[in-house]
Design a protein around this nucleic acid. Structure first.
Lengths: 254, 254
DNA sequence: ACCTGAACACCGTTCAAGT
DNA sequence: ACCTGAACACCGTTCAAGT
């Protein structure tokens, strides 16, 4: 019962409510676009774009741990306080960065049928999420409704609609696909399952042997397969299950 | 080109490598269990369990923002330095908390057939992830291979094995299910899609109208359905797609 | 309108010194 | 062996004052 709850309300309280949406929300993006239109930047001055650009450099070169407001300001040879004219908080900056990387997802499907095109899109999206330097904690902390995420949603929705799904079914298929891709990438990046299975070979058998004898009966029998499966194999099979489901439930209901 | 990259290597470097696994890894959990066995706690003293318990209280009462090492120490009426005898870092503490909440997932399936039982397990897991106070960024930042996660994996694996799947197929089904549930919960908690759809009704139409006319063709036609879909509906349909896929691919391949 | 410089109110973590 | 107290090296954010 000490005084750690007497602290003043966080600064974000001022921004929330009616003033501006939560970073990442549709509202926040809309207001951000409107504000950008109003702004008349003086030449050579700062801008949100320049702040984000500098942040990307810091992130790429020094990693997420080093991505501080002060480091970004240093890179721009200005004071940390100056950045708050262009971003409202560090959180906002991270949302901007997350959406930026999603912009690297390529959308041209090739037109080899809806199923092949959806698979290509899912693989592309996964690869971007795995390669991008934000840790899953930061990249997925706030759902992003920015323009680059909308591009992907639009592409997926379009493929399912072209395949003959109703609006509702295309919605479910798209949202499920996005949930799966994000979850798979986050767990892999978080250390859950690597390219060569859940753990190294030594560690795997050691782990398997350390399981208490009276617990985890299924892991005792199928645990070797579970620990050995690579993230790529799991992803490929997950896509197959999901798209089989789309076919059998939304396209060819018996 | 300032001096922010001249800082000393982070303290975690000392712990990584051969000394101890990354928090959350199988290795880390094993070493943690071994260390707990060696320890002979004096009565009335601190312990990892007491530290975690205090952290859970702080988290529940004051939220994640207030979950600092110092606040946990205050709650235990000790100094912050003292906690480092029992946890190696704040990150470790968060992994311990994440696994703790996964322990609330109930496993009794009811035996109404594999499909109903898997659905129950998925819903239960989702609910725990949604209700627990860690933000998705913290809860999913590190994949957790702790005892409580293994319980869930074991249960899922067991249901799929009982249904007649091979070890490999049960592995794919289980891992895909976990990826989907985590992704869905993280995106919902992050603000992506709420109980009443992606946004409020007003915001939804406003957002829809603000879409540029020459972009997002699919969102223009199916966007209303996409934004209106509730998180519950998306989850229910996602489960159906996934389990349909399991049936058609792993149980009744034509 | 935009930026500087300095301050405010914190952090996680370490470590000599005590018991 | 475990804990205290104090310090180290940082943080994000605010704001008067300048231009």
């Amino acid at each position: 019962m000490k005084d750690h709850d007497e602290r003043p309300a966080p600064a974000s309280a001022k921004m929330s409510g009616t003033e501006a949406g939560q970073p990442g929300s549709t509202r926040w993006w809309a207001e951000r676009a409107a504000a950008a239109d109003r702004r008349r930047p003086r030449t050579g001055g700062l801008s949100t774009a320049r702040v984000v650009e500098a942040a990307l450099q810091v992130l790429r070169e020094c990693g997420f741990e080093a991505l501080t407001v002060r480091a970004v300001a240093d890179r721009l040879e200005t004071s940390s306080g100056a950045l708050y004219q262009h971003i409202a908080s560090r959180d906002e900056l991270i949302v901007l960065i997350a959406d930026h990387y999603l912009g690297d997802v390529r959308l041209q499907g090739g037109g080899r049928g809806w199923r092949a095109d959806v698979e290509t899109l899912m693989r592309e999206m996964r690869q971007i999420l795995l390669d991008q330097p934000l840790p899953p904690s930061a990249a997925m902390g706030k759902a992003v409704w920015g323009p680059n995420t909308l591009r992907i949603i639009d592409a997926a929705l379009g493929l399912f609609l072209d395949a003959g799904l109703t609006d509702e079914h295309a919605t479910y298929a798209t949202a499920t696909m996005i949930d799966f891709v994000f979850g798979a990438a986050a767990i892999q990046r978080g250390g859950g399952r690597g390219p060569n299975g859940a753990t190294g070979t030594d560690e795997r058998s050691q782990f398997h042997n350390s399981l208490p004898a009276d617990q985890f009966p299924a892991l005792r029998t199928a645990g070797a397969a579970f620990l050995a499966a690579s993230a790529d194999d799991v992803f490929t099979n997950g896509m197959a299950l999901l798209l089989d489901g789309v076919t059998s439930r939304f396209l060819n209901p018996h």
